[in-house]
């Protein structure tokens, strides 16, 4: 029986790890997206007392290694009375961490947003909220699409760190099989294949979205 046959027999473990990774990834990027958009909206405000802490939060996330944030949420929060299980700690850490990155990406585009369009919106009676959600945000997203695609890939790769806080996902499956049967190379080659498949699928989707924005003159596919 070759090493590959062993892994084939254990495919159920890979499969459940794969689904778990997809679930964690899917949920956390939706969370990150919402956090990123919310931060961008709050940063629209002119009151420094609100925007300063947000800027500090974003910068703090960007200087913090992801693993440390995951540790903090899983091992640190219980000491202040908040106990999340490993799975939710992981999803939460990913969402918050990449949400800050999303916000930073959005902000870069927001800073170069044509002021004339804002004036046109004001002149047509738009108030701040409607202007943001109808006119600013859609354009910021279209504009930053390639950067968002990159960030999603980072987020996918960061899911693998969660094995350290005992989340059973794809890397955890490979870890467990490699140590049970002492076949690390083959086991990890298999998970590379899975990560690669997710990345490629994501890249295709992001690229397809590019047609939508290219039609509106935002970038080239």
């Amino acid at each position: 029986m070759s090493n590959w046959d062993i892994l084939w027999d254990e495919r159920a473990q890979f499969w459940s790890g794969f689904l778990s990774t997809l679930e964690i990834f899917g949920l956390s990027i939706v969370g990150a997206f919402v956090i990123g958009c919310s931060l961008l909206y709050l940063l629209e405000g002119s009151r420094k007392r609100l925007t300063m802490p947000l800027r500090i939060f974003i910068d703090a996330m960007r200087m913090l290694p992801f693993l440390i944030l995951a540790y903090l949420l899983y091992y640190g929060l219980p000491s202040v009375g908040i106990r999340l299980d490993a799975w939710w700690s992981g999803v939460g850490a990913l969402a918050v961490y990449h949400g800050a990155y999303f916000a930073e990406i959005f902000r870069g585009s927001r800073l170069t947003f044509p002021p004339g369009q804002i004036e046109a919106a004001k002149a047509h009676g738009f108030t701040k909220g409607k202007m943001f959600f109808r006119l600013i945000l859609p354009q910021v997203i279209m504009q930053t699409r390639p950067l968002l695609g990159n960030q999603l890939i980072y987020a996918l790769k960061d899911t693998a760190f969660l094995v350290i806080i005992t989340v059973s996902e794809l890397t955890a499956a490979a870890n467990s099989l490699s140590s049970t049967y002492f076949i690390p190379t083959e086991a990890f080659i298999v998970v590379i294949g899975f990560y690669w498949a997710i990345s490629v699928t994501m890249e295709i989707i992001i690229k397809q979205c590019g047609r939508f924005s290219a039609k509106r003159g935002f970038d080239n596919v």
């Binding site: 004339g116 046109a120 047509h124 009676g125 738009f126 859609p138 279209m142 509106r216 935002f218």
Partner: peptide
């Protein structure tokens, strides 16, 4: 207040030198 201002503003239609259409 901004909402009231927006209402009065909507009584005017403005055309800009730089068009300022919404590209999306």
């Amino acid at each position: 207040p901004v909402r009231e201002l927006a209402k009065v503003r909507a009584k005017t239609g403005m055309v800009f030198q730089g068009f300022n259409l919404w590209p999306h």
